[in-house]
């Protein structure tokens, strides 16, 4: 019996807990991608850089707070700085929309043109980020490191395996749940949210019923900027902040959005967790789990790992390919807000 518990705790420690945190980050990122797709109808390749930009502002403000001795103990100081990051990223999104995307909206450009334009925005934002904060690695985590330490857990339960929950993981999940709840409340219950859904569903009908398209677009960008910053900061807190990694996140984020069905917010959330858990389940080495579950003489020799962790990004790609082959519209048939 203890062996079974040990195996469960082992999986919980290395798959469930990190999967929940990573899945929340991806879900928030994919939600932003899906919002822009639903309202502006293009795949925003600059989304990774928006996340990075918001996280960068948050880090700069965090440093300022830390320098002045302000902290949010036991929680990371970055949470206090998060609103500033959101303001920064939202400002960036709105300025870019005003200067760049609005013109193409008026021209009624095709989605491919938008895609190239978003590459331009991505390059500029990426350059700006590297210009301001540099390309290096930044660790910003402070406050209490763990909610439960592995050793305390072992002492409490008397098991061999420990279950550690990092503060950042807890913060990530709680923040993500509240943000997602807010987004769904907003889209489902408020007038503006309903207007956005109507606009996403049928642009012409929405215009006929007097919805102001510029306002809808503006709110979409505000939400995207905020979501991107939260996702980016949480990712940066959990792992570490490095401008380059946010570009690599594009692939899992888009995979998440497509798996769920692009343009569908529930799909984005589900997709985020599907991608995150697949990544962890496929790259986890099951050797110890089998050692607990099987009698000693049957203990496996190899690592029992389906794919080495080097290829974790390949997992999102394979998921993407399977979805494209089997159900191109995604699990929740996309394009509905």
């Amino acid at each position: 019996m203890t062996d079974v518990l040990n195996a469960i705790v082992l999986l919980g420690n290395f798959v469930l807990v990190p999967g929940l945190a990573y899945g929340s980050q991806l879900a928030l990122g994919a939600l932003g991608v899906t919002l822009i797709y639903g309202i502006l109808r293009f795949s925003n390749l600059a989304h990774g850089e928006t996340m990075s930009f918001g996280a960068m502002i948050t880090i700069l403000v965090t440093w300022l707070l830390q320098a002045n001795g302000i902290s949010f103990h036991p929680l990371p100081t970055a949470l206090l700085a998060l609103p500033f990051g959101i303001i920064g990223a939202v400002a960036l999104c709105l300025i870019v929309d005003r200067l760049v995307y609005r013109y193409y909206r008026q021209q009624r450009s095709t989605s491919s043109i938008y895609l190239i334009v978003s590459i331009g925005v991505m390059l500029i934002t990426g350059g700006l980020i590297r210009f301001i904060i540099g390309p290096g690695d930044r660790k910003i985590t402070d406050g209490e490191r763990f909610i439960i330490k592995a050793r305390d857990f072992k002492e409490m339960t008397g098991l061999n395996e420990g279950l550690a929950i990092k503060t950042t993981q807890g913060v990530t999940v709680i923040t993500a749940v509240s943000v997602v709840a807010f987004v769904f409340w907003f889209l489902g219950r408020t007038r503006t949210g309903k207007a956005m859904r109507a606009y996403s569903d049928n642009e012409d009908l929405a215009l006929l019923s007097g919805i102001n398209p510029e306002r809808v677009v503006m709110i979409a960008w505000i939400m995207t900027g905020a979501l991107a910053t939260i996702a980016g900061t949480l990712y940066g807190l959990d792992k570490s902040f490095k401008p380059f990694t946010y570009m690599q996140l594009l692939l899992p984020i888009f995979a998440a959005a497509i798996v769920g069905g692009v343009g569908n917010p529930i799909g984005a959330i589900v997709g985020g967790f599907v991608v995150a858990f697949s990544e962890l389940i496929i790259t986890f080495a099951y050797r110890k789990v089998f050692m607990y579950l099987l009698p000693d003489e049957m203990a496996p020799e190899g690592m029992i790992q389906l794919l080495s962790t080097d290829y974790k990004f390949a997992v999102s790609f394979v998921i993407l390919v399977i979805v494209l082959l089997v159900k191109p519209t995604g699990i929740f048939s996309g394009k509905l807000l």
Partner: peptide, 21 residues
């Protein structure tokens, strides 16, 4: 059309990982 974009973005990363590892 943007599915090709995402798919190529993905395959290029994977090719690089493959060559690296």
């Amino acid at each position: 059309s943007d599915y090709l974009a995402i798919a190529t973005l993905g395959i290029s990363e994977i090719i690089i990982y493959f060559l690296k590892f």
